[in-house]
Computed example of a mutant assay.
Amino acid sequence: MQFQSELKQAKLLKRYKRFLVDIDTAQGELTIHCANTGRMTGCADSGFTAYYSTSSNAKRKYPHSLELTQNQAGDLICVNTSMANHVVAEAIAKQQIPELINYETLTQEVKYGDENSRIDILLSDAEKPACYIEVKSVTLLEENGQGYFPDAVTARGSKHLRELVTMKQQGHRAVLFFLIQHTGIKSVAPAAHIDANYAIEIKKALAAGVEILCYRTNISSEQIVIDTTIPFVAPQ
């Protein structure tokens, strides 16, 4: 997935009001938009390098958007969560994910389930069961390369797991896809220390046959593309 405009580099000063970030550019300080509504723990600290895009839409109050950050260890982090679905959909379309190849059609944001949800990606084929894919962007890194999801309590995330279980019970494939968008993360685990209920729902989903895929990404200031799989550490 290529960025639509050239990314420029700056120094991150602070994030506030969730959607705003102040950066220090060669031309002076600038306030830019941040599409990430999460806590962004360890992803937007003062002093990090910031990479931002510029929109051609003259109606935007803040024409610049934060796309990537780089921490003191040199790890690149995609903080624009809207990129995740596009990266996975593009990789599937290019047959780059062996577990998800040979489907006739790919559709996105399809209404489904009993809890008024939308599935991120739906793969369909006349010769096999439909495949429901929920994509989660993973950027929380703690110690020794261990990544976690979620980075905050997520009732919505638990709902998505219940919906996937229902789809599996109805005879479809159901996939929870962790897209690792932090180059320092080497494995992924449910963050039971942050959201114990989410870890419980993960255990229920695994028992019901929901598949979990974890793929890291190759991140640069030009593009984000699927890389290799990394281990998933299942809850005990």
Rank of each mutant, 00 (worst) to 15 (best):
F149P: 05
Y132D: 01
L176A: 05
I97C: 02
Q96P: 00
K204T: 15
A191R: 13
I194S: 09
N80P: 00
Y112G: 04
K203A: 15
A189D: 09
L179K: 08
I180A: 07
D227P: 03
L164N: 14
G145R: 08
A234T: 09
S46T: 11
E29W: 07
L68D: 04
L161Y: 12
H182F: 03
D45W: 01
K128W: 10
I92W: 03
Y52H: 04
L68W: 08
I219V: 04
N218F: 15
E115D: 14
A208D: 09
K136R: 14
R39W: 06
A58T: 15
V225K: 12
M83W: 14
G184H: 05
K204F: 12
I77Y: 01
P129Y: 03
T49D: 15
Y148A: 07
V188M: 12
A10Y: 11
R156E: 11
A84E: 08
I133L: 11
Q108H: 02
H33N: 15
Q170D: 04
P63T: 08
L68I: 01
T41N: 15
V153M: 06
Y198Q: 11
F48C: 13
L7Q: 06
I180Y: 05
N57L: 12
T41W: 13
N102C: 01
Q70V: 08
L13C: 02
A26D: 09
L141D: 05
Q95V: 05
Y52G: 05
Y148E: 10
I226E: 04
S56M: 07
S5P: 07
E211T: 09
K159P: 02
D195M: 09
Y16W: 15
V165E: 13
V165M: 15
P63G: 08
L206G: 11
Q181G: 02
R118D: 03
K94S: 06
D114A: 06
F48T: 07
V79W: 02
K203Q: 09
R60M: 10
K94Y: 11
L176R: 05
F19A: 12
T107Q: 10
K8T: 01
L12A: 14
T183G: 03
E29M: 13
R118K: 10
G157Q: 06
D45I: 03
C43I: 08
S46W: 00
I230S: 09
E142S: 08
F149Q: 07
D227C: 04
N116L: 07
L100D: 05
T166A: 10
G47A: 13
M40W: 09
K59H: 10
D120S: 05
R118W: 06
H86S: 04
N80L: 08
L30E: 13
H160K: 06
A205G: 10
Y132L: 00
Q2L: 04
L20I: 00
Y112P: 14
Y215E: 03
Q223I: 04
H86P: 00
S56Y: 02
A189V: 12
I226V: 10
A130R: 07
Q146H: 14
Q146K: 15
G184S: 03
T81H: 01
P98V: 07
A192L: 09
A191M: 08
K94Q: 11
A44S: 12
N36T: 06
A35V: 05
F177R: 13
A199Y: 05
E163G: 12
L13A: 09
E222F: 05
K159N: 10
